[in-house]
Nucleic acid binder design. Structure first.
Lengths: 240, 240
DNA sequence: CGAAGATAGTTAACGGTGTAAACTCTTTGA
DNA sequence: TCAAAGAGTTTACACCGTTAACTATCTTCG
């Protein structure tokens, strides 16, 4: 027979799963609806989530972990020797998921209430996956990275002790400029996908993926993808 | 004595104002709270908004109009002969406002429920202000714009009949590539500000404005601001 | 002018929500 | 074994969006 801790963990999982299925189905994420789904009463959920906000946060973390896995999976469809293809496949997967799951995307990535930095950094977050992919790309292509001395001193200080991306603590100091490249690339991807998802732009441009393609094109230069661009563009056409 | 239509319009305004003040104050935007604010009962509001969603939309439009005005005001602090300074001042104002009013920003710019394209295009929207500023800049600087024939044919077709930005219908066809430049620039600004606002990045980078500065720097080239960059960077330092 | 109708507002009510309190069982651990 | 801890329940409260029925008040037009 299962121990208490086991059933508790199982229930915890069922709660998050039920909550996720609700928001995926486009329904309201409410304590009572989750309880109904699990044949429980709403107050029982307070044994697992301190508040409604807390439940939302749990769901957000679960979704983020899931999309991180999807992104990693899309990347894994290409060989490790082709980090450029991996990166592009991951980016396309992220975009496709966001456009197809606007409510979930909003919950995780544009939620004012969920404190993300503190929690998402602890777990396997989507942003971290991109950090890893970009790092792998750099290991192969050796695109130029700024020297810390070329950066604003304050900024250089931050790069010496990076907070948000992957665990690059073992990256030697003279190539910590990579973190900056990384954050800038993430900002482009995140920004483009968010704009496309929330539609503050001509919808036809979104539908045909022009904005996304242009963003990738822009990044090709700084990321040393120029020589490979025709092949990667073809890959993009195929995936979009 | 005021006619019926007048009092109605006044009440309408008071409703939106009260609703705005609620979300500005960080409170929940609820029909009953708005009614309370105005010494009314909640059902009375149904004479002015068809539903709660409708009220939210009204507030979103009001906020958008307000930030559009702020942006225009910030631009107007610089002479019309200096469109570059105008553009930068406007961008900084947009960013500052977003960071200082996350809830309102989310309501207007990353709201899944509010259909923005259809409604925001009709009124004076924030995006449109930037279109105008960028157009003014182009008139002075004549930064290069792509020929429609250089663009993807589908994309070129969209540019011939632009939907979202300003009323550029009187722009001759051989410079409609400007619309594309415009949408791309907006995507950079929107994306950067959204990322900074929702904090999926190292908060220290946001606080010091490095990401925003880098974004502006990136845009300087394509927008023909290179020669002016030192001056504009100084302006940026001053405004941030 | 005066009656008919439209309009702004009310009260009452319904079902749904988050959450607290008090209460049962059942499991755990000394 | 027995007391403490834990999972879940019922009950209750205040709040929410929304509808229906009703009352004034203003407008309009014969």
């Amino acid at each position: 027979m299962p121990t208490r801790a086991q059933t508790r963990a199982a229930t915890q999982e069922r709660i998050v799963a039920a909550a996720r299925s609700l928001v995926t189905a486009g329904n309201e994420l409410t304590l009572r609806a989750v309880a109904r789904e699990l044949d429980m009463t709403a107050p029982a959920l307070y044994r697992y989530a301190a508040s409604h906000q807390d439940l939302v946060k749990m769901v957000a973390l679960a979704i983020d972990a899931d999309v991180a896995e999807r992104v990693a999976g899309a990347a894994a469809a290409h060989p490790a020797e082709d980090p450029a293809a991996r990166l592009i496949a991951a980016a396309v997967e992220f975009r496709t998921w966001a456009l197809g799951n606007r409510a979930e995307f909003a919950l995780v990535f544009t939620n004012v209430d969920v404190e993300c930095i503190s929690d998402l950094t602890a777990t396997a977050s989507t942003g971290m996956r991109f950090s890893e992919l970009l790092f792998a790309l750099w290991q192969q292509v050796q695109f130029p990275i700024p020297a810390l001395s070329d950066l604003d001193p304050q900024l250089a200080e931050i790069m010496r002790d990076p907070q948000v991306p992957a665990d690059l603590t073992d990256v030697p100091e003279d190539m910590r400029g990579l973190v900056w490249v990384l954050e800038r690339a993430w900002s482009r991807l995140y920004g483009t996908v968010t704009l496309e998802t929330f539609g503050h732009i001509d919808p036809r441009v979104v539908a045909q993926g022009h904005l996304f393609r242009a963003m990738v094109n822009d990044q090709a230069g700084p990321l040393g993808l120029e020589p490979d661009l025709p092949r990667l563009t073809a890959l993009l056409d195929e995936l979009l």
